[in-house]
């Protein structure tokens, strides 16, 4: 299993192993989506998450829980 792990790391692209101090929960998803050389692992994570997200989005629309109008998010208010 440890071999699998190092292999997993070796085969990953620059987007995946990006080390940037500014990277966090709010921007990493956009980085992974915009990364031009998606490695397999990366592609699979992004695609699988996107599929999940589109299902949640659908259920939102069905339940009319939230109006999915403008894509622009409200600015988070700094506390």
């Amino acid at each position: 299993a440890n071999d699998d792990c190092s292999k997993m790391l070796l085969n990953r692209c620059s987007g995946c192993i990006a080390v940037r101090k500014s990277l966090n929960s709010r921007n990493i998803s956009k980085l992974l989506h915009s990364c031009p050389h998606r490695c397999d692992h990366h592609k699979i994570i992004v695609e699988a998450e996107d599929k999940y997200k589109s299902e949640v989005r659908k259920s939102f629309i069905c339940n009319k829980k939230i109006l999915l109008t403008p894509r622009r998010r409200q600015l988070r208010i700094e506390s």
Partner: peptide, 25 residues
């Protein structure tokens, strides 16, 4: 600063299952 945050993404359980099936752990 050498630890890549991207390796620690925690997706929903159903997504994890799919990812595990395709790429392992």
């Amino acid at each position: 600063t050498s630890v890549a945050l991207g390796h620690f993404i925690l997706p929903p359980a159903s997504v994890q299952k799919e990812i595990r099936r395709k790429v392992g752990g």
